[in-house]
Amino acid sequence: MAEWLSTHFPPALIELFVDSLGETLVMVGLSGLAGAVLGIPLGVLLRLTDRGGVMENAAFNRTVGALVNAVRSTPFIILLVAIIPLTRLLTGSSIGTAAAVVPLTVAAAPFIARLVEASLREVDAGLIEAAQAMGATHTQIVFKVLLPEAVPGIVAGLTITLVSLTGYSAMAGAIGGGGLGDLGIRYGYQRFMPEVMAAVVLVLIVFVQAVQSAGDWLVRRLSHR
């Protein structure tokens, strides 16, 4: 077994594998965080301005909703290419791990926004009405009623987003974004090393399972607080 590993995975390749895994973690982690920072407020805004919301504004809601839907419906590989000018503006390059974070964030933010909006819809309307009856401001309703009640659903949505970003990061890696996707293409496909491709797929599966399990555990904890 040791001989087989040393033959198919020499130290240099193992080191490259570890570096690629680190790049994938950076891409998924940073884009997930940035997507949440942008997407959660956007989802809250969509819910507040929706029909029956405390800040109902049909025109604003339809306009923002259309933009969110437009980004969500764009295939990631096309989005990746379409926003290259923005990526270069923000990072100075269109390739590499840092550059891949930009399109990943753009893809994640509207996805998170819709998941947050759906979670907020599940909050009992009676709680909101009670808060309004007691004179709560819009800010108080958001931070003391809507978000606390929707936390389990929001965490579940963020978990789904991280899993999706893992797949997107592999796609970004295939066109110069680095990470495990880049490793799989350069060594597993272009250099005819199927064992490398298999190892990449296995690691991605394990990573996704770990993220999903951690997310499910956190949701259960938050649901029984």
Rank of each mutant, 00 (worst) to 15 (best):
F111I: 10
A125C: 03
E117V: 11
E56D: 02
A107I: 11
I160A: 15
N57Y: 03
A133T: 10
S20L: 05
V37M: 04
W217T: 09
V206K: 13
D19M: 15
A199L: 08
G167R: 13
A108N: 06
I40S: 00
E117W: 12
E117L: 14
A136K: 01
G32V: 01
G22A: 11
V71E: 01
A70K: 00
L86E: 09
V200C: 14
A214W: 11
V203W: 03
L115K: 09
V211H: 04
V208E: 07
E23S: 13
M27W: 09
I112W: 05
I185D: 14
A150T: 12
L127W: 11
L104A: 05
E15P: 06
L16T: 10
V54I: 14
R225K: 13
S119M: 08
G135Q: 03
F111N: 04
G39N: 04
A82R: 07
A70W: 03
L42C: 09
F60L: 01
E56F: 05
L79P: 02
E129N: 02
W217P: 03
G178I: 02
G29I: 08
D19C: 13
G52M: 05
V151Q: 10
G92V: 10
I185Y: 14
I14T: 06
A113F: 06
I205K: 04
N69R: 00
A210E: 05
